[in-house]
Design a protein around this nucleic acid. Structure first.
Length: 217
DNA sequence: CCCTGATTCGC
DNA sequence: GCGAATCAGG
């Protein structure tokens, strides 16, 4: 596989969307995660939170005479140290001066609900990345199987929240039928979720459990 | 062990 | 330029 313009474009998009190199490689296909990382670096894409980076050359008492032979070839006129040479657009977005960007630029803390759902934080009504849909719409890979299905984001008080499939799977979605008033599920799935208490001797083992159940493969 | 990204270096 | 091998932190 070669790095066509299109593949590079995909790489860029996914890279600054925060996807892992593994995911990107998987998506592109035909390349390893190493290839992706290597390419990303060659492209000069911004470094990502790496597990092994924050360490700065400490001036420890090393017997090494050569302190900093770090070859910075194009050190034309950079006298001061640039701890975070990430800023690239100082005077941009003239039309929108005050960008209400969240104070923290780190990952948003989330809690995870039963079944592996990711809960939205209060006030976080918008997914992580959607600065603007400036370009043409792109394939939007991750949601092809769900097209037309009831996704997590579609859930509300009026539709059945009975899960179809398992969280994390590409086709995972929800029933989405009209809810049985007073219940989180539609009539049919209420029948699965709630069973009349029968006399002990008549009870039967197989209780359908939404989530939690051991995966059957 | 697994995961991650960074770096190196032979091709 | 490419990416496997290697490194190193979580």
């Amino acid at each position: 596989m070669s790095w066509t313009e299109e593949r590079i474009d995909t790489l860029k998009k996914m890279w600054d969307s925060g996807l892992t190199a593994t995911q990107i490689a998987e998506e592109l296909g035909g390349v390893s995660r190493n290839a992706v990382i290597g390419k990303a670096h060659r492209l000069g894409l911004p470094a990502r939170p790496s597990p092994v980076k924050p360490n700065e050359p400490k001036a420890a008492a090393e017997p090494k005479p050569a302190p900093a032979p770090r070859p910075t070839p194009a050190a034309t006129a950079t006298p001061a140290e640039s701890p975070a040479p990430r800023a690239a657009a100082p005077a941009a977005t003239p039309s929108a001066p005050a960008e209400p960007k969240p104070a923290s630029d780190g990952p948003v803390l989330r809690s995870v609900g039963p079944g592996g759902f990711v809960r939205q934080n209060p006030g976080e009504q918008t997914p992580p990345i959607s600065p603007a849909p400036p370009r043409r719409l792109v394939p939007a890979k991750p949601s092809e199987a769900i097209a037309g299905k009831t996704s997590l984001l579609d859930l509300n008080d009026k539709i059945c929240k009975w899960p179809i499939g398992h969280p994390g799977e590409p086709d995972f979605h929800f029933c989405g039928d009209k809810v049985n008033p007073g219940f989180p599920y539609c009539v049919e799935h209420c029948g699965h979720a709630y069973q009349a208490q029968l006399p002990r001797r008549d009870r039967r083992p197989p209780p359908p459990l939404p989530f939690g159940g051991p995966r059957v493969r």
